[in-house]
Structures are given as C-alpha cells and as structure tokens.
Amino acid sequence: MCSTGFVRSLGFALLPLAVCCIVANVLLFFPGGTTQYLQEGKLSRLVWFMMGIGGGGALMFLPAGVFISLGKCTGCCWNESVVMCGSVTAALVGLAGSGYCFVISAMAMLEGPQCDTGLGWSYPFANEGGRYLFEQETWSNCSYPVSIVEWNVTLLSILLGLSGLEFIICFLQVINGLVTAVCRPCCYKQDYTLNA
C-alpha cells in the first residue's frame, strides 16, 4: 500500500489551516476592525510575535508543499523511504511552527489584552493566570478598545485550535514517515524472499 496518498491529504489539510491562522493573527492588529490602536501603538505586546502569521501560517506552507508534492508510488521501496525521510524533516519544521503559534497564543491568552481601564492603558488581567477567562463580569474593566477582551479571546482561541490541529497533522506525518522509511524496505525484502 502506498502511503504518499495519505501524506498528500495531510498537505491539503494544512493549507486552509495556515491561511486561517494568518487571517486570525492579522485581525488581532485591528481591534474592533479599526486601525486606530495599531497607529497609536496600543496593541498587546505578544501580538507582535506574529505567531499566526509566521508560526502557524507561513511556516506551514513548507510542510504542506512538501506533502502535496509527493508523487505517486514509484514502485521502488527505497525511493519512497528517502522521500518519506524528507517529508519527516518538513513535518518537524511544521511541528516547530505550530508549537510556536500554540505557546505564544496561550501566553497572550493568559496575559489578556492591553486596554484603557479608565486609569490609563495597562494589562489589567496580566497577573491573574488567566482567571479572567472565567469571570466575564471583569471584562468590562477594559473601556477601550470596545469589546477588546472578547476580540482577543475569540481570535486567540481560534489560533490555539488551528495550531493544535496543525501540530497533530505534522505529528501524524512524523510517525507515518518514520514507519514507512524504516519498515517499508524490510517489508518489501520479506515479500521478495517469500515470492522467490
């Protein structure tokens, strides 16, 4: 059985996830759909780490491209093993990118947004360890940007979910590629000796 078809499907699954990560991260730069806070430099600091644009987005195009470009089975088990080893390397890059996106998004979620509390701009939820997520009545402490807590929580949750899926897909390919690269030649050799 040829495993390259499975790998290609993983690549096609990564593409929309990467695009959605980029879109979610770009939206974090425009709270409430306005450019005002970007121009004033009043965005949360972790937004500038570009976890969705770089880690969960652009970096994912490498493994997706490698997975999709895998050809059909050539009939030579050694060629397939070499190709699978290359796809494992690409999958490791994907693991790093999705892991980066997940960790930075989680840190941003725990820290909470920068906002105007009426006493000036600050991070009112920064030292709570994410407790504010379960105390929605405290969200009104942020006056401006309007609904900034909901904006950040929604987009960061999307980034966490998407990067988690990307991580799982890349991890599946690491396992698939290693099993194929290591065991496939042995299986072919055994089949050959049985057929002889």
Rank of each mutant, 00 (worst) to 15 (best):
V47K: 03
A58K: 00
I104N: 04
S105R: 07
P63G: 08
G57Y: 05
V103W: 06
G65C: 03
L38G: 02
L70E: 13
V47W: 12
G99T: 04
G65L: 07
C101R: 08
L59S: 08
M109H: 03
Y123L: 13
L43I: 13
P63K: 10
A58E: 03
S44D: 15
E80T: 14
K42S: 03
F102V: 02
G97P: 11
G99E: 10
P63E: 08
S81Q: 10
V88H: 09
G120D: 11
L62D: 00
F67M: 14
L119I: 00
M84Y: 15
G99M: 07
W48C: 00
R45F: 12
L70D: 04
G99H: 05
G52V: 07
Q39H: 10
G41E: 08
K72E: 07
V82I: 14
V88L: 13
Y100Q: 07
G118F: 02
S81P: 02
A91F: 03
V83K: 15
E111L: 14
C85D: 02
F67N: 03
F102I: 02
G56D: 09
R45H: 12
G120E: 10
G112L: 10
S98P: 00
S105N: 05
M107V: 14
L59Q: 06
F102S: 01
G75P: 10
G99C: 10
G41W: 05
L38F: 15
L92H: 00
C76Q: 05
G75V: 04
G52W: 09
W48K: 10
T117W: 01
M60V: 01
A58N: 00
G120R: 06
A90E: 11
M109E: 14
G52C: 07
C77G: 00
A91G: 09
G71N: 08
C85G: 11
G57W: 04
S98E: 02
L70G: 13
W78K: 09
M51W: 03
G54H: 06
T89Y: 04
K72N: 08
L110I: 15
L38E: 03
E111S: 11
F67Q: 09
S81A: 15
L92S: 11
G54F: 14
G86I: 10
M50E: 14
Y123H: 15
F61M: 15
A106R: 12
S87R: 12
M109N: 02
L70R: 15
Q114S: 07
G55N: 06
S87E: 05
V103M: 05
L70H: 08
M50N: 15
G97D: 06
V83T: 13
V66R: 11
G99Q: 09
V88N: 13
M50V: 11
E80Q: 13
P124N: 03
S69E: 01
L43D: 06
P124M: 02
